[in-house]
Amino acid sequence: MTYKLILNGKTLKGETTTEAVDAATAEKVFKQYANDNGVDGEWTYDDATKAFTVTE
């Protein structure tokens, strides 16, 4: 299944996707991606759209 990450960081904005077996796996991938790019903020998840959002 495809999951999307929407980044609303102070220095990094954009979107990326990942293929994962479930939302928990996608969340781990996205949190590592955000951490690697220096984005740390409030996380939300919308199951209807399979989209995670992180806002700094």
Rank of each mutant, 00 (worst) to 15 (best):
T55D: 06
I6S: 04
N37G: 04
T2P: 05
T25H: 13
D40F: 15
M1H: 15
V54Y: 03
Y45H: 01
A51I: 15
A26V: 02
T2A: 06
T17W: 14
L7W: 12
T2Q: 09
E15S: 10
V29P: 01
A48G: 09
V54H: 01
K50Q: 11
V29H: 12
T44V: 10
T53C: 08
T55I: 09
K50L: 10
T55H: 07
E56L: 08
D22C: 05
G38W: 05
K10E: 09
A26Q: 00
N35Q: 15
D47A: 14
E27V: 06
I6K: 06
T17H: 10
A24Y: 10
T18P: 00
E42F: 13
A23T: 09
Y45C: 02
G38D: 07
T16W: 15
D40L: 12
T11P: 04
T25N: 08
V39Y: 07
F52D: 01
Q32Y: 05
F30Y: 01
K4Q: 05
G9I: 08
E19L: 14
F30S: 00
L7M: 12
T44D: 09
L7A: 04
F30I: 01
T49K: 11
N37E: 07
G9N: 05
T53I: 07
T49E: 12
Y3K: 01
G41Q: 01
T18D: 02
K10Q: 12
T2M: 11
D46P: 00
T49N: 13
N35L: 15
L12V: 13
E15G: 06
T49G: 06
A26E: 00
V39D: 02
F30K: 01
K50R: 14
T25V: 07
E56R: 04
G41H: 02
D36C: 08
K31S: 04
F30P: 00
A23F: 13
A51D: 03
V29K: 08
M1E: 12
G14L: 15
K10I: 15
A20C: 07
T2W: 10
L7T: 04
T53Y: 09
L5W: 02
W43H: 00
A20T: 05
D47T: 09
F52N: 00
T44P: 00
A51E: 14
D46C: 07
T18V: 14
E15A: 07
G41D: 01
E15Q: 09
M1C: 12
D46S: 05
A51S: 15
T18H: 07
D40K: 13
V29M: 09
D47I: 09
A26Y: 00
G38Q: 07
F30G: 01
T17Q: 10
N35E: 15
W43S: 00
A48T: 12
Y33A: 03
I6A: 03
A48D: 13
M1W: 13
V39W: 14
G41W: 06
Q32E: 10
T18S: 05
E19N: 13
Y33M: 05
G14D: 08
K10V: 14
T11L: 13
G14S: 12
A20S: 06
F30C: 02
E42C: 11
A51V: 15
V29L: 11
A24F: 10
Y45M: 01
A51G: 04
G14P: 05
T44R: 08
T11G: 08
L12W: 14
F52R: 00
N35M: 15
A24K: 12
D47R: 07
L5F: 05
G38T: 04
